[in-house]
Design a protein around this nucleic acid. Structure first.
Lengths: 355, 355
DNA sequence: CTGAAAGCGCTAACAC
DNA sequence: GTGTTAGCGCTTTCAG
């Protein structure tokens, strides 16, 4: 491991002072063409790269952006991460990623590490169970981060309290659920089972709220709502639908199912099929997220597109923008439904995908 | 934006010297219980966290691991990244990710940035077009990185030259292709179309090689091989199969298709279906990667599982292990086939998923 | 066991 | 324009 070449070596080789080297490299200060050339030449000869740590210590250099999330592979998180990375890269920042597994202890440890790194911003992604403990924890993070000169951005999760120095970027979860439920209602469905959401979890709750609101707006009494929430994930969806079918002794008392997310929906389609029920001929199915799986399965899933990558981009854009204010800002991104083939119109009503 | 609290503040508050504070925090040096207590107390009171940059400059502190790859969302890359992150986290390291979009210029810029960061290891992921330019570029990276005390790990891509200080972690691409082709042959298929690989790209070439070898071993003449490579990706698969079908005027001259990856396979299933061909009854289809889509579609795709996450883990494990040697090491991870329902046995031969 | 002091590599006044 | 120099915050000899 040969000795690292430093700015001093470059200066020596170029026959100038370290200050000059620093200046031509920074490019923010007048330097003569002659010395600039000599320095550049030396840099190339020596294959010199500046030490980011030294630079950071001396109070210059770009900082890094950190993203903390449940995991790295789920399509939602992966897309947010991609958005963060792209926007950060475009602005010359490096991106640090870490997964929390939704363990508060690990999350805290990571926030501390980000303080140590003096990250310019830390982006916390994903729904949570919103309680006082959560709000207090976020407030602590935000304060600590702010004191270290960095900013906290909450992405797809609720804001803690109005006076906490955090930015929040969300997408309209409730509206998406409202829209897709309305789509189903518009196609003539009334008995719509909502399955695969996690009670208490913000994301799930918002989707339930949108579903319920749509039902109400279309005159479906609240007690006709069929709710069966048990958590996201493929297995959950499969089990949920099995439960529902069992309860109905094989003769489902619903004509459509609104799955908590697309993976749940995909599992639902499979479970239904195993029971000899066709989608969408017998039962219509919609999902949420516009996960790649939605386009890959047959029938293509009608679902709600959520702007995951855009959230990531927005998060860093906001973080790097203007002066950090004392209070907080909230940005709500839109969703839209993507119509494919998994919904059938009932009794000649409007709708898609049916005959 | 309050002034950052430094080790000096802690020392003052605890009534000891900065050296003592440093020592108790590092915990690698004897200190009296009394001062340890005072220091810890002050740290808590002040909510102090060390400055990672200063620590790095002074030659201590954990370094970071960097992963550079095409993008962050594709399931293969996401899984490798996840493996890297998990293993790094377990060893107290932070992970830096960046996407290259397979642009050599961007890749180079990122390698330079990683040198600046003094990353402990940089992991380059994904197949490439292997030519002299590539080999030379990797050699340069490896040398530069080694000179800065960090290591280059090539993950899922070929090694440059025997004397280059790089580690390589790969999976047995050729063997996987051999195995799945053999599976098809064992089920009685002889006319197997291989579609959706990118000529010149290592990953694609290896799969073709395994396919060809399996054919040869089963007595299928080379000129009966049906190769139609045009690149990975869903659209490519769709187009490829359309081409093939068109060429055969609707009456396919193959009974099975080996798709370059699972997304291509998924598109193939859809394209086939649009032509009134059922999978696996009329045509069997297999993929590669064991992407989530393989389990989500109907029929479930028989495919080759590749140890993406394990590669990521192995990469950092190796990087952090033993002393960096001059030469290079190569690690080949295994693959295995995952049997689902997309292959049908012909004429009573063995096979799965049929009748 | 603890403190003083010398850097780590770079930037940014401050002189010239 | 360019050189000198004082730090940035921490670790680590080197003395006590």
């Amino acid at each position: 491991m040969g000795e690292r070449v430093t700015i001093r070596d470059v200066a020596a080789r170029a026959g100038v002072s370290v200050a000059t080297v620093s200046r031509v490299l920074a490019g923010n200060y007048p330097t003569s063409t002659a010395s600039r050339a000599k320095v550049l030449r030396a840099v190339k000869d020596l294959d010199y790269v500046a030490n980011a740590h030294a630079r950071a210590l001396a109070g210059a250099g770009r900082k890094t952006i950190a993203v903390l999330m449940f995991d790295v592979v789920s399509s939602f998180y992966a897309n947010v991460a991609q958005g963060v990375e792209m926007e950060a890269a475009q602005r010359g920042r490096l991106t640090l990623v870490a997964s929390t597994g939704s363990d508060p202890a690990r999350e805290l440890a990571l926030v501390q590490m980000m303080r140590e790194q003096a990250a310019e911003a830390v982006v916390l992604v994903g729904g949570v169970i919103e309680d006082d403990e959560y709000r207090e924890r976020m407030a602590r993070y935000a304060q600590a981060l702010a004191a270290a000169g960095s900013r906290l951005i909450l992405c797809g999760r609720p804001a803690p309290a109005p006076d906490v120095p955090a930015l929040v970027v969300e997408y309209d979860n409730e509206a998406g659920a409202y829209a897709i439920t309305s789509h189903l209602l518009g196609a003539g469905h009334r008995k719509i089972a909502l399955i695969g959401y996690q009670p208490g979890h913000t994301t799930g709750e918002d989707r339930v709220a949108g579903y319920l609101r749509a039902l109400a707006d279309h005159g479906v009494p609240r007690d006709e709502a069929i709710l069966h929430g048990i958590g996201f994930g493929q297995n959950h969806g499969y089990e949920a639908i099995m439960d529902l079918l069992k309860k109905a002794a094989g003769r489902p008392d619903f004509t459509a199912v609104f799955a908590g997310d697309d993976r749940v929906a995909a599992a639902t389609v499979i479970a239904l099929r195993e029971h000899g029920l066709r989608v969408p001929e017998d039962i219509s199915v919609v999902g949420y997220n516009d996960d790649p799986v939605a386009a890959d399965i047959t029938p293509g899933l009608t679902t709600v597109h959520i702007p995951a990558e855009e959230m990531g981009r927005t998060a860093v854009r906001l973080a790097l923008a203007g002066a950090p204010r004392a209070g907080q800002e909230r940005h709500l991104l839109g969703t839209h439904i993507v119509i494919r083939e998994s919904v059938r119109g009932l009794r000649g009503s409007r709708g898609d995908g049916g005959s």
